[in-house]
Amino acid sequence: MYKKTLQAALGLSIALLGTAAYAETLTGTYVNYTFDESALGMFGTAALSASGDGLVFSPVDFMATTSGTVFAQDTIYVTVTANPGYQLTAFGLSETGRYSRSGDGPLGVTGQFGLTDVEGTTVNHILATIEASPGSFTEESGSWAAQAAITLPATGWGGADGSVGSVSLEISNLLDTSGFSGSASIYKDFIGLSAFTTTVSPVPEANTYAMMLAGLGLVGFMARRRINASA
């Protein structure tokens, strides 16, 4: 049930990509993040990480509880663009939170993390599952952690030069206490996104090749003159 709900929400977010009014851009050392600040919802506020290239969210009232909202779900999307001279290679997502429980039944922390190619001529999309680590929610109260990671394919994505300079990223999160018998609450306290890059090897332009060939020709001509002069 979780996956069907999240896939529907993620599909809606992808459909909205073309109409979203991005209002904020945060520029790091190697990448920049563009998003609609007014649409962050329960993800709260966003800021660059201390390293300067991650994006950190501070959730606001992102919680599910048997005494109130038993099912909390939200989705955001962000455009990630590599700065000049760099290309995107991979992404990592880390989330943490806390919980309390008194009774019996399952507690759910899950979601989907997706990337869409915005440069290629074909529609490329990758999904990864976000899920709390095994062993969570076994005590009456405690903390939980969830991770997801995506490595971009070596080929088939990006622009004509084969490098990936920009992607659309979607994060869909779900907290669920609906199946719990008793009293329970789940809170999401932190969401951190990491972007990984490598440098792009510059491809010489046609006039650069011409200058290189002319230079090699001049070197060859001077070498022949020296040989003839010494003969």
Rank of each mutant, 00 (worst) to 15 (best):
A146L: 06
S201N: 14
G156I: 05
V164E: 09
A231T: 07
L169D: 11
P204N: 01
A148N: 15
A20E: 08
G159A: 07
L12T: 15
G114E: 15
G158I: 07
V118W: 05
E95W: 01
Q87E: 04
A195Q: 02
W144S: 03
E119M: 04
S13A: 13
Q147D: 14
Q73E: 15
E119N: 08
S183L: 11
F221H: 06
Y86K: 11
F57R: 01
G162I: 07
Y86P: 08
G192L: 11
K3V: 08
W144L: 05
V109T: 11
L93I: 07
H125S: 09
R226W: 06
I171A: 06
R224H: 14
A154Y: 14
F71A: 05
T155I: 09
Q112H: 15
L12C: 05
F190N: 08
M1P: 14
M42H: 04
A184E: 02
S172C: 11
L10F: 14
S178G: 11
T29E: 15
G159H: 03
Q147C: 03
V56I: 03
L216C: 14
L26M: 07
S194L: 08
Y187D: 13
G44N: 14
T197I: 15
A195L: 02
Q87C: 12
N32Q: 09
R225N: 06
I126M: 13
V203G: 12
I130R: 12
